[in-house]
Design a protein around this nucleic acid. Structure first.
Lengths: 186, 186
DNA sequence: GTCTATATGAAGATAGAC
DNA sequence: GTCTATCTTCATATAGAC
């Protein structure tokens, strides 16, 4: 996974503001002026922290993915076994709930998708997640099942149907229903 | 539902090109120059068909939603009953598969989301879909279940795990796994 | 680390000819 | 219905002072 990049305090302010704006307007819909305004500085100050807008996008994705990888690492500290899958999935769910405003952007923003498609770390994450979801199966049904569960968790956290559920409730129910979904295929 | 707007042939060319580009780059990442280039005309020609970029977005969403509403209407031609839910869901699945490159954009693009949030027709569609998925239940579990199924269908069709499945296979397996998911909660 | 000022290009949009 | 030409605004990005 990417080493915890030593972002300065000023850089972290840019990243945090950028993530909020990316989640609301998308990457292409977010200008450096908007980021600068959100922090309360000028564009030039932002450009002093990152040389290009692309670098901001990379840093923002980097920070978000670091949390996902950290969660997966923790989950795999335990002994491998039948309960490992549930632990990993719960980590994914917890992370999706905690970062629910960002998850949809990470999964669906065209700019970020292109970025992630070329990141080895992310491809590895997807393969690990796939294995957790359906093991070694490669049948169309297994792949559709994996795609649906992955999309369901990522997509549900931002869904209007659950917009006013608090994190605790959302997390609890997501875990419950995901377990039901997984058992439905056995 | 919106009346089938009488878009001219030239307007339909703009809409078709715009939809492709929106799906690939997002609405904010698509310029009128890109749309004009895709059709092989100049920006001014595009502006002769639609007065603003926003009008193009509205028309594109209009065209896509018309298909969804038509499918729902067909599904509700039959007698209301226990099998109605499955018919509606199958129509939603068929439509999602047929338009798989567009579904993610419709669901997740920030510009389009804002547009849809203010459209009565779309809100009605969501309520109808919710009823099909969980009936009158309003518990957190029911809402999470509905959100997950809705997100799963819409999100799975664009998922890398199923990118190389043909439409027939994807549709068949989506129907199968969705049925399993629905039965898992009973 | 932040500012003012500025360069350069591309965006959305319009006027008027063909 | 399409073009050339143009306007204005905003985008990314840089130079140099404090």
């Amino acid at each position: 996974m990417p080493p915890a990049a030593p972002y300065s305090a000023a850089q972290q302010r840019v990243i945090a503001a950028a993530l909020e704006l990316f989640a609301e307007h998308g990457v292409s819909g977010t200008s450096l002026q908007m980021i600068a305004d959100a922090i309360g500085v000028t564009k030039a100050a932002v450009y002093h922290q990152f040389r290009t807008k692309e670098e901001i996008v990379v840093a923002a994705v980097d920070v978000e993915l670091a949390q996902v990888f950290a969660a997966l690492d923790v989950a795999e500290q335990g002994e491998p076994g039948p309960r490992a899958a549930e632990i990993v999935l719960n980590q994914v769910i917890d992370n999706a709930v905690a970062r629910r405003r960002m998850v949809s952007t990470l999964q669906h923003d065209p700019v970020i998708s292109r970025l992630l498609a070329h990141q080895e770390h992310f491809q590895l994450f997807m393969r690990r997640l796939y294995r957790v979801l359906v093991g070694d199966a490669t049948s169309p049904e297994a792949r559709v099942r994996a795609a649906m569960i992955a999309a369901a968790i990522g997509g549900a956290v931002m869904h209007p149907f659950v917009a006013d559920l608090d994190d605790d409730t959302l997390r609890t129910e997501l875990r419950r229903v995901t377990r039901q979904f997984l058992e439905a295929g056995d």
